[in-house]
Amino acid sequence: MKKLVLSAAVLALTAGLATAQTVRMGTEGAYPPYNFINDAGEVDGFEREVGDELCARAELTCEWVTNDWDSIIPNLVSGNYDTIIAGMSITAERDAVIDFTQNYFPPAASAYVGLSADADLSGVIAAQAATLQASHVAETGATLLEFPSPDETIAAVRNGEADAVLADKDFLAPIVAESGGELAFVGDDIQLGDGIGIGVRESDAELKGKLDAAIQSMKDDGTLNEMIKKWFGEESLVF
């Protein structure tokens, strides 16, 4: 952490004062492979790589900060950081409060995971609070059990508190693969949301424009697709 800060500071100084504005990138740091804290204690993951590339293309100096998911939008609008890049799906509800750039990740599949493939999907379903999946579970009529972090939703299924968990399939896939048969996907995948975008303040049109242009250039030259394949596997959905 310290080293990262130091090297970022040194970089900022050597890069000259032309790039005066530092953009603070807010993320959760608990949602691999989108974002997580690596062994060295730094923010890592798909979004770290995309974000750093976007900052380089838009010629911005970026700094990464982590924030609790529950208060991630209030802290953006009050200006504690400038973007949310935390696997946040674009929805009409959120769009009313903040603005989104164009998506840097296509609408992802969500999936149910339970202790067996025939788990009861109308029973108790765990989901992270304030997510697309949580509102979907509420709509299906199943009993929704909310947790503040993604990790706790999995733990709830493991200890039998919930019949299944609904989350992004990309988050669940490595967990199911390494559970040694303890966990299994249940039912079909479902599509929720309009893909994942970077959240910015509604008053921050300039930053939104810069990021939009950078995302477009990454889509055009294929670097974004390469990153998606690197983090989510060869057969994942690309642009």
């Binding site: 200006g79 303040r201 509604e202 008053s203």
Partner: peptide, 24 residues
Amino acid sequence: WQGNDFVVCTAAKLPLGTAPQWVH
């Protein structure tokens, strides 16, 4: 106050947007 956003000029930010992470 612009809708939900709280916007002050860059010089009034606390700490300044350019300040290193440890200051924040």
